[in-house]
Design a protein around this nucleic acid. Sequence first.
DNA 1: GAGTTACAGATTGTTGACAATTACGTATAC
DNA 2: GTATACGTAATTGTCAACAATCTGTAACTC
Lengths: 233, 233
Amino acid sequence: MVTPGVRKGVRSESPQPADAVYVQLHHELIAGDLLPQQRLVEADLCSRLHTSRGTVRAVLLRLEHEGLVVREPYRGAHVRVIDEREAVEITEVRAVLETLAARHAAMMATEDDLAAIRAIHAEMRPLLKNGDLLAYSDANRRLHARIVEASRHATAQRLLSELKAQLVRYQYRTVLVPGRPQQSWAEHTALVDAIGHRDPDRAAAAMMAHLSGVVTALHAAAGRDADPASGFG
Amino acid sequence: MVTPGVRKGVRSESPQPADAVYVQLHHELIAGDLLPQQRLVEADLCSRLHTSRGTVRAVLLRLEHEGLVVREPYRGAHVRVIDEREAVEITEVRAVLETLAARHAAMMATEDDLAAIRAIHAEMRPLLKNGDLLAYSDANRRLHARIVEASRHATAQRLLSELKAQLVRYQYRTVLVPGRPQQSWAEHTALVDAIGHRDPDRAAAAMMAHLSGVVTALHAAAGRDADPASGFG
DNA sequence: GAGTTACAGATTGTTGACAATTACGTATAC
DNA sequence: GTATACGTAATTGTCAACAATCTGTAACTC
């Protein structure tokens, strides 16, 4: 039969209304539409997102576990603020996980992986020369994501995506430190080269060196402009 | 007034029925009372744990995020089985996180921390000599937990506790590999010594060496007895 | 007889109402 | 005038009913 009919074992891609609510709230959190420490009252979210409290609750539970909101018993949920100390902690954990990923990428990467990684890296140089820091920062993000994907390390990948979401507020800080983008590009070059040569130890060392630089830059950025988030709370 | 009366800002430790359900189910999962791949039907859990579906649902969501159960849309939840490949992945991540923790412990540990760590380590030697492998394995667990605590690294600590829960089924395997406990004790000695001497680099190296040994032992254990979990699925 | 279609049972996803708890404003005692 | 006790409003935690979806069985077509 050609008619749509019955698809038996098709895993029918159920719409799952809760997912739409999650995507929306997650986006607002990531995009920064919601202020830090802002209260998230379940009833408000219901009317705003056109759904029921049960659904909102499930989504808030998920976001809590992802570290994007905090919930206290009978006191509700609010947007989680990540202070500089915690941002450094998260960056440290990111560093060791991405180092592990780089090591595995050097062992597991396919030719397609390598081509994609080299393409992103090549794309970054003109952006750096033109001083397009936003585009550079975005390419940087994609390069790291592609390396993690090439590692085929599902556990590291899952944890890294969660940690990354928590750091969005600090995402564009390090690239603003004078001289940092140039150093970053040099470090990336060593990293991509090591992965291309299938050298796990050198890839791991390069990634670790690179992310040590990020931690240093993060400290520098935090020192320059007083953190606006920690001022009121 | 002296009567109990109203305690204003006391954060009154609300009983939170959902927590009791979580503790119970979490325990059953960890203790292995529930078989791998076993279905967790919400209605069954309700009558067994004397609560409502809303509560059970919230708990299942949380357990899913912790990686202890899997939920598929409209198909329900079941106990997650972790195959050997994933156990190795998790152990690798544990290794790099505990290495980070050891480095910080060497920098941050108080005298109380050091005393506690040395006490646990001293406690392990007679257990090893007497061949009490279960007690040794438990002391080993406590030693690692205490070091992580001493690191004062909340992010690493949180992720490690989740990863650890996922590995309970493999917990006692490595200690059964011949010669492994003796090697383990030697590695621990170097680790405790490095932390005691406030030497972050040496502590990190010792922890990494130790956990590399664990990964090797895990492979050996998996090779010896074919994994019973992966046979039927 | 093999394959497909319609139906029934079981299970999950969602919704709305009720109970428990907290926070704030007001009155009162000293 | 300050601090404490009470009452009310707001908000979350829990519960039970309804709708949507999936799985397995039996009848039907060719």
